[in-house]
Each structure stands twice: as structure tokens, then as C-alpha cells.
Design a binder for these strands. Structure first.
Lengths: 250, 250
DNA sequence: TGAATACGTTATGTATACAATACCAGGGGC
DNA sequence: GCCCCTGGTATTGTATACATAACGTATTCA
């Protein structure tokens, strides 16, 4: 290789994976579209071997689909695929919460969760919420969910939850973003925050069933509001990932 | 390449993946052991590129772990990892059963399940059950679970369930195999069959909560008996996959 | 004698060449 | 006029060569 600039700080494989995922989620590559390796080589700057590794990883991640005759295409999701994935994640997070409650969590471990909770409370006190605060909310909410998941002390479960969140809109952040278009966004966030509060309380009091139930309800709230948000599609044009949802089916 | 024999009927990548998975599950490669690409090239007969693709896939599958400094090692599972994975699968199958019940399933779609059920009934009528019948049971049970999963009509959920079953002993077959060592094996299978019967009934009557509950109970039964089977470890020596469970921790 | 460094070996990460297959276009036959 | 067959092209699958980083070993110095 002569003139290709190589960034040696991260592996080419990782670089290609990030670049391709970005292209998919940003909508540069449309669902159903075949990904050409050669084209990916040009856009990512890596060579074919790392690109192929990245493609395999993205396929396992669920964003790509293998074409029987060879190669990969961008996977298309129905609205139901997305809502199922959210409910799926809620179910898994419910299990995580139950594990946490049943297995016991020390006050020290719960501390970061409570800090997160307090920080979100602080944000929600603003009426109406500012753009910056909303952006912070997205981060804090993702952090809360990640911490909660960790409390289960179950690596296989954590792994599965991460997987379930791979689909666009199925991650904590994606879900919040989707709802941002709704006029009732702030009320929704307040209800969600109440769920957060309840799950911590339940874990603290070792009420596994209650902890599980509230996380599932949390997901159902998300599903309901994603549906509403999708009806308001005009407000969502800022979210290119939306293009991933095929409009025809479902 | 001069003398390497190449089987062109399946892709080298798939061949390598199957061969490596087999080596891992059969215990040829021990947990924690580093997998050398060169060695894998020799044992699988594929060249480095497909071997690497297979390694990446197996890592995503959860059987391998990436070593930070490069390469892969066989993942080690604690007993709790396994039991968590079984419970995880039960939870997901519960969700699948609930989806099936809520979304409705035609009599025609339920037919294969009922046939499966009847076939298992037939097998269990033998006392004591023969080795051949037991082997048929393993197949039929796997089929039942696969069919049930499909009834959810939720591709993301099906995908996740498949993933959850990747760990040794976490698949329907693996679980049955593990229990085969227990003296109460036949009673356990009879109880499990009752669960199967109930879940079909619940789906037929569109009782989502009941369908879900029984699948979760089904998994809890599996967890309890896996624990028992692991106490009887001597009987299980015929199962090399057991070596994958690290004995020190947990 | 122990520790640290330098060197050699080995393995992985990356790039590219080669092979085979699938897709498309054009022409000929029915 | 339509379908099938054939040839070319493009793209993927596979193999291997090269570069680079990690690990082990031996030697030297304190």
C-alpha cells in the first residue's frame, strides 16, 4: 500500500466496523441494499480482510443479513420488529432486576444508580426541558440502564441485553430519542423516572417480582410511545435511522 | 495450494466454524486455552482467512473470548453462567409463548406441535425408557422448542433465543442430556412433558400469562435438575462439554 | 544471584493476488 | 416474439505474503 493513510491507534477491523455501522444507522446505506465489499473498502479506508471481519460482526450484531448467494445486505426492520425488540429488552432487564433483587445488592453498589436517579430528577425539574438537558438525559438514562444491568451479576444476561439493544430504537438512548418528537415527551420522561425509582426501591427491599414487573412495564411504556412517535413521523425526520423501518410491511 | 483436499460442497468458513465448535464442545480445546490460528488451520483444513471468520463468529456466538493482546481463547463458564443462561432462555421462550398466545395461532400451525407432543407421549410410555427412545426424545424436544419459538412470529425474539441456547447445556438438547445422568430422569421428563402440554393449551386458549408462566417454570425445573446433575458429576463424564464449566469459581 | 534489557521467534493483523461463482447482456434458436 | 444459452464482467470466497506486535529466552550488569 502506498498512499493509504493508516490510523494505527485502533485496529482496522474496529475502524471499519464503526464506520459501517455509522453508515447503516445514519441511513447512507438503505435497508435491503447490498453492501459491496469494494465500496466498503473505499469508504472505510481499511482493506478487504478487516472489512470482511467487520461485516461478519455486524451480521452477528443483527444489522446486516447474509445473502445466500454471497455478500451482505442491510437488514430491514418492521415496526413490529422494533417494538418486539424493545419488549425483549424490557423482559431481559426485568430478569436482571430480579436477579439483582434476589441476589442482593450492597448499598455501595446502589450508590451510582441513586446518583443517576438524582441527576435525572434535577434535569426533569426544568419546565420545559432544554435541549442540553434533554441530551444529558439521554446519557444518564443509558447509564442508569447499563448500571442496572450490571447489578444482575450475570455476564450472559448482560451480553444478551447488549445484543437486544443493537437494533435501532431498541437501545435506551434510541428509545428516548424517538419519543423526543412527542409533545408529551416530558410527562413520559417523568413516568419513566418513576419506574427507575421503583426498581431501585424494589431491589433494595429484595422484592424480585416487583423489580421485574416494573422494568417490563417500563418497556411497555416505551413500546406504546414509539408507536405514537411513529404516527408523528414528520417530527422524526431528524432521525435518519428511522429510514431503517420498512414502511410497506407490518 | 498443492495437496490440500478441498471440500467444495460447503464453504470453508462454515466448515471451519463447525469443526472448531465441535472441538470446543467436545473438550479438545479446554476453557481458557488460547486458540492458535495456525493450529486451527491444520485441524480444520481451511486457510487462515476462513478460520479467522469462523473465530469471529464463534466469539459473537459466545464460545470464544477475544484476548486483548490479540487472538482468541475458549471461554470458561461458571455453573451459574449456565444456569443463568437456561433461565434466560426460559424467560425468552416464555415471552415467545405469550406472543403466540396473544397474537393468536391457527389450529393448522399448532398441528406440528401436537404431533411432537403425541410422539413424546409415546416415548414416555416405555418404562424404563430405552436408550434409543431417549435419543429420539432429545430430537423431539428440540423440535418442540423450535416450533414453539417460531409461533411467536417475532424474528428478533427467535434470534435471541437461538443465541441464548449457544452455551453448552443451555440448549434444549443439552439440558436433557445433562439430566440423563439423574436416576429420576424419567419422572423429570414426564413433568417437562406436562409443561409442554400446558403451554399448548394456554396458547390455544389465548392465555398469554399462563403460557409465559409455564415456560419459565419449565426453565426453573431445568435449572434445578442441572444443579442436581452437576452434583452427580461422576455420571456425567461421558459429556465432555462438562469440562467447559470451570470448577474453581462459583 | 536476581533483574532488566535486548534479541529472536512466533503469532496475529493487514493487504493483496488468485480462483470461482453469480449476475447481466447479447445473440441465436424455437 | 420469447426463451434459452453462452460469454463477459463484476464480486465474492480463498489463499498467502508481508508487516507488526507480543512473548520467551538468554545474556549482561548491578
Amino acid at each position: 500500500m502506498a498512499e493509504r493513510e493508516v490510523d494505527r491507534s485502533v485496529s482496522q477491523t474496529v475502524k471499519a466496523q464503526l464506520a459501517l455501522r455509522d453508515q447503516i444507522l445514519s441511513g447512507s446505506l438503505r435497508p435491503g441494499e447490498r453492501i459491496s465489499e469494494l465500496q466498503a473498502v473505499e469508504t472505510t479506508g481499511a482493506s478487504r480482510t478487516p472489512v470482511r471481519m467487520a461485516l461478519v460482526r455486524l451480521e452477528e450484531e443483527g444489522l446486516l443479513e447474509a445473502i445466500p448467494s454471497g455478500g451482505f445486505m442491510v437488514k430491514a426492520f418492521s415496526e413490529r420488529d422494533i417494538s418486539d425488540s424493545i419488549e425483549l429488552r424490557g423482559t431481559l432487564e426485568g430478569l436482571a432486576a430480579r436477579f439483582a433483587a434476589e441476589r442482593g445488592v450492597s448499598a455501595r453498589e446502589l450508590e451510582p444508580l441513586k446518583e443517576c436517579l438524582a441527576a435525572i430528577d434535577e434535569l426533569l425539574r426544568q419546565v420545559p426541558i432544554s435541549i442540553e438537558a434533554f441530551s444529558s438525559y439521554v446519557t444518564l438514562n443509558a447509564r442508569f440502564h447499563a448500571l442496572l444491568t450490571e447489578l444482575s451479576r450475570s455476564p450472559p444476561l448482560v451480553r444478551q441485553i447488549d445484543r437486544a439493544a443493537a437494533l435501532p430504537f431498541a437501545s435506551p438512548s434510541g428509545f428516548v430519542m424517538a419519543q423526543s418528537a412527542l409533545p408529551e415527551a416530558q410527562q413520559i420522561l417523568i413516568i419513566a423516572q418513576e419506574h427507575h425509582r421503583v426498581v431501585i426501591d424494589a431491589i433494595e427491599n429484595r422484592e424480585g417480582a416487583r423489580a421485574e414487573a416494573v422494568m417490563r412495564e417500563h418497556a411497555r411504556l416505551a413500546v406504546r410511545n414509539l408507536r405514537l412517535a411513529l404516527r408523528n413521523r414528520t417530527h422524526l425526520d431528524l432521525l435518519p435511522a428511522l429510514a431503517l423501518i420498512k414502511t410497506a410491511t407490518d
